[in-house]
Simulated scan of single mutants.
Amino acid sequence: MKKFLSGSAMLSALLISGSALAASKPTVVLVHGAFAESASWDGVAAKLLKDGYPIVAVANPLRGLKYDADYVDEVLKNIKGPIVLVGHSYGGSVISDVTTKDTGVMSLVFVSGLAPDKGERVSELGKKFPGSTLGGTLAPPVLQPDGKHDLYIEQSKFWKQFAADVPEHKAALMGAEQRPIAAEAFEEPSTEPTWKSLPSHFIYGSEDKNLPPALHAFMAKRAKAKEAVEVKGSSHVVMISHPDEVAAMIERAAADK
């Protein structure tokens, strides 16, 4: 005798099946960098969600390295199971500084991301190799009530500096919606980096004008990364212009042992 499920029972079964599928894969935590925001991960997140990965796109406060790392720490502690931790640009510094104790972080992915060593500051690491033109595109700092100074990229310079391989109209929206970073965050020394104890993967663009490709290659080699991929023709926002390549790397990181 055949048994037939009611509509509600079938829906429950499908939800349970879907939850089990998601639970079998690591959660991907995406940390954006300066002059960006969580929506910058839209293309990558859509691909990963389609492939069954749970996603958390953190709203990085951009208030200071320790402050931001502590914030992400709290997010990580509330996620059960294995985690692939991903950082773009300054967000790479943040994922380098988090305390992974009592979390499920299993691997790291640096997307045009900074990976400072203990004691290094973002400001000095960014000058290690020639080629960055970021400084000349910044608007005058905006004084905040807490005494810190917020930095923005001038909107008229945003497209060519930050996202040259993104359609101009889309880059214009990104420039208008950019999140500022406290200038003081670039001067905080990093702590013992996570990349010394966890497997790492690096992906970056050959036309990155914020952080020179030579710097990315240096950081990947220093971290003994499992892979370092340079995307030809890509700007600093490789996750927006080449989401499939970035998502594929994250999925490879999810297979780390």
Rank of each mutant, 00 (worst) to 15 (best):
K2Y: 13
L5S: 11
M10D: 13
L11C: 04
G18K: 12
A22R: 14
T27K: 03
D42F: 02
A45E: 00
K50V: 00
A57Q: 10
A57Y: 00
P61C: 06
L62Q: 10
L62E: 07
D73W: 01
L76S: 05
K77F: 02
N78V: 02
N78R: 13
N78Y: 00
H88G: 02
Y90T: 07
D97I: 05
T100R: 09
D102Y: 02
D102I: 04
V105A: 10
V109W: 11
V109S: 11
V109H: 05
V111G: 08
S112G: 15
G113I: 10
D117Y: 00
K118H: 03
V122M: 12
G126K: 04
K128I: 01
F129E: 11
S132G: 08
G136R: 10
T137W: 03
T137Q: 11
L143W: 03
H149E: 12
D150N: 12
Y152Q: 07
E154V: 04
Q155P: 06
K157R: 12
F158G: 02
K160Y: 06
Q161D: 06
E168D: 09
E168V: 15
A171F: 03
A172S: 14
L173C: 09
M174L: 15
G175H: 06
P180A: 11
A182F: 09
A182W: 06
A185P: 09
P189I: 02
P189Q: 11
S190R: 00
T191L: 06
I203D: 08
Y204T: 11
D208E: 12
N210W: 07
P212T: 10
P213H: 07
L215E: 08
A220P: 03
V231C: 05
S235W: 06
H236P: 03
V238C: 01
V238A: 04
V238E: 04
I240V: 14
D244N: 06
D244E: 13
A247L: 00
A248N: 01
A248C: 02
R252A: 08
A254S: 11
A255G: 14
A255W: 03
K257Q: 14
